[in-house]
Design a binder for these strands. Structure first.
Length: 157
RNA sequence: GCUACAAACCGAGCUAUCGUUUCUCGCCUUAGGCGAGAGAAGGAAAGUCCGGACAGCACAGAGCAUUGCACCGGUGAAAAGCCGGGUAUUUCAACCGAUGCCGAAAAAGUAUGUUGAAAUAACAGAUAGUGCCACAGAAAAUAACUGCCUUCUCUCUCUCCUUAAGGAGAGGGUUGGGGUGAGGUUGAAAAUGUGGGGUAAGGGCCCACAGCUUUUGAUGGUGACAUCAUUAGCGGGUAAACCUUGCAAGCUGAAAUGCCACAUAUACCAUCGUUUGAGGACUGCUCGUCCGAUGAUGGAGGGUAGGCAGAUUGAUCCCGUUGAGCAAUCACCGGGACAGAUAAAUGAUAGUUUAGAAACAGAAUCCGGCUUACGAGUUUGUAGCGUUU
RNA sequence: UGACCCAUGGUGUAAUGGUAGCACUACAGAUUUUGGUUCUGUCUGUUAAGGUUCGAAUCCUUAUGGGUCAA
């Protein structure tokens, strides 16, 4: 009963949530729909952070459905550069892990600006990376995304 | 003891923190959320080289084509799989040993033979037919050329007879005709090899020995086949050239297919056609049969791209006892195991153990094989090297 | 996932099972005061490993690499 009480109190609820659910990457946080991905590649913008090319698109929250998460994410590696499925899997896993551990700041920013963001990473390098490098580069990309959100807000206002 | 190769086994474990996915249970609430528990890549999941299951379409039938396979028996759902056997070739070992060829001799414990072991084999047919066989060589296959023979012809010389023509004999030439077939430097391959007889000259033309193929019979074996006797022969190679014979195969693959939801355009343009038949089905073609009018083909354009089933327990795999079998494998009983995603799950970080913070490598409908890639160690086998006795 | 095709010097392409050819490129030489043009010569090759055959770029098998089609 004590636990329920704690859950019911608004302050505690936020704290609990932040502690336990900080570094998740569930189904609704990943880009799943083929249609949305095609839209992202057709109309979205992109920039390059050395081994990665990052596609993103900012939607207003109203246009997106309520069920969808505010921030959705996807990774890819071309089978031309990496012929073996094991290598492609490894790149996707490393990138997912790096995103999972570092995306929180961006999520807060998106929430604050009342928008919805879709991001897709494509690995364009030709050699297998290690985790430290991937983590570093994803961090750079995240900072760039935060900057672009700031710009769009300032333009609107 | 070391190294190499082949086969079999195994294909890392533990702790902490964060995280993914499926199922079950509980709570809140019926949109979903939270918590707990359990499960979560391979020996090759790979290549897609074979074979199936399963599904859809088709299924009165006939012929042709196409593709694949090819010693025998067993096994298996089936297979270019597996097991056992036969035959051939090669290598090794042991034994017999010049009986053949060549030669003046050496050659030699060599060839050949017998037995055993291992390896390899797309291992039906070259006497159904067609094609091809570079260079070299006379010739790469009914043959021609060269050579040999000729008491056929032509022609020259000499001798004899008769003397008008001519005739007879001997010797030479080789234009032509006839006979003959392996002697002819080559080549990967040359009409079975050697000896003798025979002949105008020669030839398996005949004989002896040897080799190979074949007919028939007997014996053994389920059979391939083997042994013995007998009969007829000696024809180059190539079928992984076309092909012939026998056997098998309907076509398409889960992005198949069925259902639900959502959305639209039965509109527009061109060509053909409406019983004098466009087009379609029998799925490669033909015959034949059937269907056939709000029709067929193409162009340009519009809409959707969500969910459920298929779909993960099946010819299933593993272990053990017993039985059948040489074995592959099969049968009975007992026990155990088996992921299920859909932009697609097994991860990251730190520490630690072995041995170096392991190699090859990631399920996507599912099985049986084959092939290829690979790590450390153990066992077995083969080969080589070194040390000791 | 399924089906299919291809591989010849550095590049583009030929070659009935019988000496791997052609063009461009590169290099060297000649011509020219020098460079270019032109001429002459040289270098470099059948994707790999097995098999069939007297003999394989070619036929067969396996592997490697590249490409095409099917929503």
């Amino acid at each position: 009963m004590k636990i329920i009480n704690i859950l019911n109190s608004p302050f505690r609820a936020i704290l609990f949530c932040e502690m336990s659910k900080q570094f998740t990457l569930g189904k609704d946080e990943r880009l799943k729909s083929r249609k949305l991905i095609e839209q992202l590649f057709d109309t979205g913008k992109s920039f390059v952070v050395t081994p990665f090319r990052v596609y993103f698109i900012l939607n207003s929250e109203l246009s997106a459905g309520k069920e969808r998460s505010l921030l959705q994410f996807g990774v890819g590696a071309s089978s031309k550069n990496f012929k073996k499925a094991v290598e492609r899997n490894r790149i996707k896993r490393l990138t997912k892990e790096a995103w999972r551990l570092q995306k929180n700041a961006l999520e807060e920013k998106v929430k604050a600006s009342v928008k919805q963001l879709n991001v897709f990473f494509i690995y364009t390098g030709k050699e297998l990376p290690d985790f430290a490098m991937v983590k570093d580069k994803v961090n750079v990309a995240l900072k760039k995304l935060v900057d672009t959100i700031d710009e769009s807000i300032s333009q609107n206002s």
